[in-house]
């Protein structure tokens, strides 16, 4: 078996990139909806009244760190150090769970205040945009579990390493989207 598996130029990675671009366009539509509907609160609460910035910051930093640890896991995979790779994937998974937990408690807090997605078009757009990102995170978490199994059950062949590499791309990509949710949804929502 070759020493270092170079997967970046695999044809599957290219196709996966194109898939990521299409996903990015779905998010663009959701962002467009959110921005257009940002003032359509219909007498309900606005973002400024609802968002708790401190928990959003923790969420953001957790996701950013997980993006970093995920790249470390990939680094270890390429060095063929299964234990270290598993460790970093576990850290990534834990941070992802922290993120999802904070998001979930934020959502339930909003629902308790009566600010649910049926309250106004603004809240529909908010829940859909942030929720779609959360759904992607859940898919990513499932994929991380499968990747850990893959590391232990299967040889680190080009096929399997390429699959894990695509997971890492996916996870980084989710953090990229989150930068804009943080800025556009929470940041401008808090400032306006």
């Amino acid at each position: 078996m070759e020493e270092n598996i170079k997967v970046e130029d695999d044809i599957k990675v290219f196709g996966f990139w194109i898939y990521l671009m299409t996903d990015l366009i779905i998010f663009a539509v959701l962002f467009a909806c959110f921005i257009v509907l940002r003032n359509s609160t219909f007498g309900g609460p606005s973002g400024h009244e609802l968002f708790r910035m401190s928990s959003v910051l923790i969420e953001t930093l957790a996701l950013l760190t997980s993006s970093f640890t995920c790249s470390l896991a990939m680094f270890e995979i390429q060095q063929k150090r299964k234990n270290m790779a598993t460790f970093w994937f576990a850290v990534t998974f834990a941070l992802g769970m922290v993120f999802l937990f904070i998001e979930f408690s934020e959502f339930s807090e909003l629902m308790d205040k009566g600010a649910n997605w049926q309250r106004s078009a603004f809240l529909s757009a908010f829940f859909t945009l942030v929720g779609t990102h959360g759904l992607h995170i859940s898919v990513g978490l499932l994929w991380i579990i499968i990747a850990i199994f893959r590391v232990w059950l299967r040889p680190l062949s080009a096929f399997n390493v390429c699959n894990i590499f695509r997971l890492v791309l996916f996870w980084h990509f989710l953090d990229l989207v989150w930068i804009f949710i943080f800025t556009v949804v929470y940041g401008t929502g808090h400032l306006l």
Binding site: H172, D175, L176, I179, F180, F182, T183, V184, G187, T188
Partner: peptide, 22 residues
């Protein structure tokens, strides 16, 4: 402030694209 945080977001977007996504 909004203009500045949007620029910061764009900067971070570029940085992550280059340094994480290669």
């Amino acid at each position: 402030a909004i203009v500045i945080i949007l620029s910061l977001a764009l900067l971070q977007f570029i940085i992550q694209s280059i340094f994480f996504l290669d």
